[in-house]
């Protein structure tokens, strides 16, 4: 189940978005505290706008003037 020790952990950079990294992840914050995520894959915020910092909450996304092309296609769902 475990990745071989010699395999490097890959970090994927989403341009303008988060760093995507295999979890679990610990992020050392400016104030000396450490936040930990147990997710199998973790998206780490780089724009600093996240309300769930240091985890991405998609606050980096571009915004449009209404009527936008993506005015809530989720029907209030989630998956």
């Amino acid at each position: 189940m475990h990745a071989p020790a010699e395999r490097a952990r890959r970090v994927t950079i989403d341009p303008g978005g988060p760093l995507v990294v295999e979890g679990p992840v610990e992020v050392a914050l400016d104030d000396g505290s450490v936040e930990r995520s147990e997710r199998p894959t973790v998206a780490v915020c780089t724009c600093r706008r996240s309300r769930r910092y240091p985890w991405c909450d998609t606050s980096h996304r571009r915004r449009s003037r209404p009527p936008g092309p993506a005015a809530d296609k989720d029907g209030g769902g989630g998956a």
Binding site: R61, R63, S64, P69, A71
Partner: peptide
């Protein structure tokens, strides 16, 4: 297109 958030609600 789906990644663009509406800045304000257009009522829909």
């Amino acid at each position: 297109d789906l990644l663009v958030e509406p800045a304000r609600d257009d009522g829909t």
